[in-house]
């Protein structure tokens, strides 16, 4: 039987290889291109750039009538 340490080492190498694979995939896939667009990917038309989304403490502005 293979000693467990070697099995673990094999898995470790596999994991390291998958990390290299991931960065290779990301580069090929264009994940590092158009970085500005990447940063904006969490916004959409419903929650656009320029619109804060969490305003519990906000004073002064009156709350719209609850539906």
């Amino acid at each position: 039987m293979i000693p467990p340490v070697f099995l673990i080492l094999l898995v470790g190498f596999g994991l390291a290889a998958s990390a290299v694979g991931a960065i290779y995939w990301a580069a090929r896939n264009g994940q590092f291109r158009e970085l500005d667009r990447g940063a904006r990917s969490i916004f959409d038309e419903g929650e656009p750039v320029g619109q804060p989304t969490d305003q519990v403490f906000r004073k002064r502005v009156r709350a719209p009538k609850a539906s």
């Binding site: 419903g46 989304t53 969490d54 519990v56 502005v61 009156r62 709350a63």
Partner: peptide
């Protein structure tokens, strides 16, 4: 309560 869950409404008092 009030509005949709995805949006925060503002309380009248902070």
């Amino acid at each position: 309560k009030g509005g949709e869950a995805t949006y925060f409404n503002s309380p009248e008092t902070g």
